[in-house]
């Protein structure tokens, strides 16, 4: 229920933005802005889809964890108790 509402909310907002902001961008030939908006909207739609249809999308926090995984032992020694 909560997920569905979230999905509906995101979709509705995406629609509003698509109707109001996007045509304006194209009219004014602001292409970089257009692409940033499209990517952001697409990603948020993707995430809200993943909530409803129950598939997982890659989490950017995991990326950070993966990048710094070689340092894990060091940090463990440094920041755990004692």
């Amino acid at each position: 229920m909560k997920n569905t509402l979230f999905f509906l909310f995101v979709t509705a907002t995406t629609l509003i933005i698509c109707v109001t902001v996007i045509p304006n961008l194209l009219k004014k030939r602001l292409y970089p802005e257009f692409w940033v908006s499209i990517v952001a909207l697409g990603l948020s739609l993707l995430i809200s889809f993943s909530k409803v249809f129950d598939f997982s999308v890659p989490n950017p926090s995991d990326l950070i964890l993966w990048i710094y995984s070689p340092l894990k032992g060091l940090i463990q020694g440094l920041l755990k108790q004692g």
Binding site: V10, I17, V36, S37, A40, L41, S44, L45, P60
Partner: peptide, 13 residues
């Protein structure tokens, strides 16, 4: 102009 789409992205994120 990109604030609104990015805000929505933040919400999803």
């Amino acid at each position: 102009k990109v604030i609104l789409p990015l805000s929505l992205f933040l919400l999803a994120l």
